[in-house]
Design a protein around this nucleic acid. Structure first.
Length: 580
RNA sequence: GCCGACGUAGCUCAGCGGUAGAGCAAUCGCCUUGUAAGCGAUAGGUCAUCGGUUCGAAUCCGAUCGUCGGCUCCA
């Protein structure tokens, strides 16, 4: 965000605060910063605010802007500011002042409104006249972002330099809404969630399952080629396992209630790690066995709070493309580098070229000694640099049990998604006393790296739907070819084409209905298959086909065998673009 | 979990105190068609659930469940 728009947005938030102050006498103020698409301000209302009241507030904001108020920045003695806001009963402002270091605080005035603020602002509200804004929504937001604090009412506004930019933004949002995986899932019959089954639990319909199967096949193929081995583990485990792993201590809130069998509590797994570790511990391991790379499409269940569920992106039951790499100290760097490289190769196949890394380092309340962390962090940095990835470092942002790399990928319309995570775990090897005999004849504790590349199949599927806007590359398309006959005279011919495609392993549907061809094309097109084959009298006489290619290009008089060999090649090589 | 909005046919939505509606989809006819919607008919609903107010509730009120936009959290 550049300085100019920052000033504009931040000034809007003060105008909003003043408008609300004028309209609601006993309201108290939280904070009101500029954000990526505009601004917000947090309020403590005596009465709940209704959405329909926003237009009234907008009107008042326009009046304020048109009255050409000057923004005046001042520095006050902290004590003076404290007294001023205390007298007004602005308890949140007082709290902020108390948090500020030093003995001076920034103050901005516009009209009768005085706010604690560092700025920057425009010089005069008249500068906001040519800018465009719109109050967009009301939301609850915890004071200082903590669940333990009271919830304030946040009013969000969109704000841009001019109307054109605001319109562009709104248009972009509409474009994004069209790609919404929850909407496309209905249209393309991909998956559903169902009140009977339960919120956050995904039913994969045949079309969605087809895509998942293709992803899984690809995933397995690549893992085998990268030196991984596969394991399968149960869905539930006894309480002692989760006690040792520590999950019953720090993760219990996210776990489903136990079921009692023979007086022992069994828990549904929220993670796969403890099971993989038990496989490791099933025999004595030698340094010669390392590194071990064990992967599993492990289905886990986590009790996510009701308010956070979101389509495929946040669910309660999901399948992680999980793997654990267990290696020696000497192998750490190479293993991290391998995982990162492997991950980037996978993203490439799905067409995600713009990848950014985020490295999180040791937090204050970490376990594991300094040397362990240092070695791990260094290996993460080296790997990222070797791959020439753009990266940011989140200092102290790691989990208590180890540092990590997260990858974010950019989709077709520029949105970022968090996917791959590569995490060191110093906790589990310790808790489960994992060991191997080294060449020195002594027992050593291995390093354990936990990683998920796609994240979860559910979330990844959601990202894929939005990225391709439902128009999947051929290898992933649930229906790769739609065959349409123009009149019933070509029914047998169309059937013979359908049969041949099916024999060749191409996912094909055929529509024999006697609707006009334009109607059949429309119906088929809505399902977004890469290819629609159309056969009428002319094609049948010549024993050829016509093809309508997704994106609306038509080609005529094609030999079916040529088409089949081309599409098979396209599928086999997992091409992202269509062959014609 | 918290704040706000919303739940009417498979889907998209109208109706908002006085006997449940439309379009699409489905089914059955007719039509035999040349690149994004041919015509007609039929069927489909305890208006999320439970309770209250009322002579009368899809409509007003309350609770519960679910969905959506945020907050917190997160693969």
């Amino acid at each position: 965000m550049n300085e100019k728009i920052l000033r504009i947005r931040h000034s809007f938030s003060h105008v909003l605060a003043l408008a609300v102050k004028r309209l609601y006498k006993d309201v108290k103020l939280g904070i009101g910063p500029a954000i990526d698409n505009g601004f917000y301000y947090d309020f403590d209302f005596a009465q709940p605010l209704k959405e329909e009241e926003l237009s009234k507030i907008e009107d008042e904001m326009r009046r304020i802007i048109n009255s050409e108020q000057e923004f005046i920045g001042e520095e006050w003695e902290k004590e003076k500011a404290r007294k001023y806001f205390f007298k007004l009963g602005e308890k949140f402002k007082v709290e902020l002042i108390d948090d500020i270091q030093g003995d001076k605080v920034g103050i901005y005035k516009n009209g009768e409104f005085i706010d604690l603020c560092k700025g920057p602002h425009v010089k005069n509200t008249s500068e906001l006249k040519k800018a465009a804004f719109k109050l967009s929504s009301i939301a609850g937001a915890y004071w200082k972002g903590s669940e333990r604090n009271p919830m304030l009412t946040r009013i969000y506004g969109l704000a841009f330099e001019n109307q054109k930019k605001l319109d562009e933004y709104i248009k972009f949002q509409e474009e994004a809404a069209k790609r919404d995986h929850r909407v496309l899932a209905k249209q393309l019959d991909l998956y559903s969630v169902n009140e009977y089954v339960g919120p956050g639990l995904i039913l994969w319909h045949p079309n969605g399952a087809t895509i998942r199967l293709e992803i899984e096949n690809f995933w397995r193929e690549r893992h085998l080629a990268s030196g991984y081995k596969f394991v399968y583990t149960p869905h539930i485990g006894r309480d002692n396992l989760w006690k040792t792993s520590g999950h019953l201590g720090f993760y219990k809130d996210a776990m489903y209630s136990p079921m009692k069998i023979d007086e022992i509590n069994y828990y549904i797994k929220p993670m796969n790690c403890p099971f993989h570790i038990q496989i490791y511990k099933s025999k004595t391991r030698s340094y010669r066995d390392l590194p071990l790379r064990w992967a599993e499409l492990g289905t886990v269940y986590r009790f996510e709070k009701a308010g956070v569920l979101h389509g495929l992106l946040r669910v309660r039951g999901f399948t992680q493309d999980d793997a654990h790499i267990i290696c020696s100290r000497e192998q750490v760097e190479e293993e991290v580098e391998r995982v990162l490289n492997f991950s980037l190769n996978i993203w490439d196949v799905f067409g995600f070229k713009d990848v950014k890394a985020y490295i999180s380092t040791k937090p204050r309340d970490a376990i594991g000694d300094e040397e362990l962390w240092h070695k791990a962090e260094k290996s993460l940095m080296l790997a990222v640099e070797k791959e020439n990835l753009k990266y940011e470092i989140d200092e102290g942002g790691g989990a208590f049990y180890g540092p990590k790399i997260d990858l974010k990928i950019k989709d077709a319309i520029g949105r970022e998604w968090q996917t791959t995570t590569i995490q060191f775990d110093f906790n589990m090897p310790e808790r489960f006393q994992m060991e191997y005999s080294g060449s020195d004849g002594k027992l050593h504790r291995p390093y354990m790296i936990h990683r998920a590349l796609l994240g979860s199949l559910e979330r990844f599927f959601g990202i894929l739907i939005e990225n391709f806007a439902g128009a999947f590359p051929t290898w992933l398309s649930p229906v790769q070819v739609y065959v349409l006959n123009i009149t019933s005279e070509q029914e047998r011919y169309a059937k013979s084409i359908y049969d041949k495609l099916i024999e060749n392993g191409i996912r094909t549907e055929v529509d024999f209905s006697t609707e006009p061809i334009s109607g059949k094309i429309r119906a088929a097109t809505l399902l977004k298959p890469p290819y629609i084959l159309i056969v009428g009298k002319k094609e049948m006489e010549k024993n050829l086909i016509s093809i309508k290619i997704r994106g609306n290009k038509n080609i005529y008089d094609i030999d079916l065998n040529d088409f089949i060999s081309k599409i098979k090649e396209e599928i086999k090589t997992r091409k992202l673009t269509l062959s014609y």
